[in-house]
């Protein structure tokens, strides 16, 4: 193990997250390398200072009493009425109305918002694997577009036409995941040493035949109603962000992509 390796494992070592073997290697190196040993000591000291400074804060004495008092409070009038309603025969009709509201909200309002978070986590997770390893965990590795398209067709029951990409980008493979029963495929390209992914999300209700036709062939940018859509200009950790978001008749959603404007940079102009 050399100084660079120790630097890489420094925090994991200090946080006691390394396995025994790596732990011994880091210790061994820092014993013989003054620079690394000193850096480690400084880092340990800094963490200790942070810990001690934050731990000086104590909860005010009244807070515990306040919490206990609030737990003993009687429910307010509104809650009492709701409870009364729920305990009587109206329960069945109320449950029916509630279910209808939930279904409406689920299908017309909530899915996009909830899934955006899930998809971002997924995108982020793959991207971080690449940052940490650095290696992409792909289910299929191929530069052949037809091979990837066929693989996606089998996995998602969707006929997918991938976008045309510029010569300085290359297809490297695809990975499949599932979030709450929704299949998500990530098609990965490499551009300027950076992985770029196009996420294709398919609803779980697909039949045995090709039920969808997802066509990216003319795509320059992600468009919704002929306007370029940027969902957000920031990501969960700074490495990933959703570039665009589009729903097609509530059947599938397209999300693109992670790092800066890479997805747009690699697309050929239609």
């Amino acid at each position: 193990m050399n100084c660079n390796d120790v630097r890489k494992y420094l925090y994991a070592f200090l946080d006691d997250e390394l396995d025994v073997e790596k732990n011994i290697e880091v210790l061994g190196h820092s014993n013989i390398c003054c620079g690394c040993g000193r850096r480690m000591e400084k880092e340990r000291l800094l963490q200790k200072r942070v810990r001690e400074t934050v731990c000086e804060v104590k909860a005010p004495a009244y807070l515990e009493q306040m919490i206990l008092k609030r737990t003993e409070e009687k429910p307010n009038f509104f809650i009492s009425v709701v409870k009364k309603l729920m305990s009587e025969r109206r329960l069945v009709s109320l449950a029916g109305i509630a279910a209808a509201i939930i279904m409406t909200v689920y299908f017309f309002a909530i899915p996009g918002n909830l899934k955006k978070d899930d998809f971002l986590y997924l995108a982020e997770s793959k991207y971080h694997d690449y940052m940490m390893m650095p290696q992409l965990d792909l289910d299929i590795r191929s530069q052949d577009q037809e091979v990837i398209v066929e693989y996606l067709r089998k996995q998602t029951n969707s006929s997918i036409v991938l976008p045309e990409i510029r010569d300085n980008a290359k297809l490297i493979g695809a990975a499949m995941s599932e979030i709450n029963g929704v299949k998500v495929s990530q098609v990965f390209y490499m551009h300027d040493g950076t992985p770029v992914s196009l996420m294709i999300i398919c609803k779980p209700d697909s039949g045995s035949e090709d039920s969808k036709n997802v066509d990216f062939s003319g795509m320059k940018e992600i468009l919704v109603d002929e306007k370029v859509v940027y969902y957000d200009d920031k990501g969960f950790c700074g490495h990933c962000k959703i570039m665009g978001w589009k729903e097609f008749g509530n059947e599938y959603v397209v999300v693109s992509k992670l790092n800066s404007d890479e997805m747009i940079k690699i697309l050929k102009k239609a």
Binding site: A12, D15, Y121, S125, H128, M132, C237
Partner: peptide, 11 residues
């Protein structure tokens, strides 16, 4: 509620 890799990166 995020992957361990993200936690490491954030730390």
């Amino acid at each position: 509620n995020c992957p361990v890799g993200t936690v490491m990166s954030r730390i």
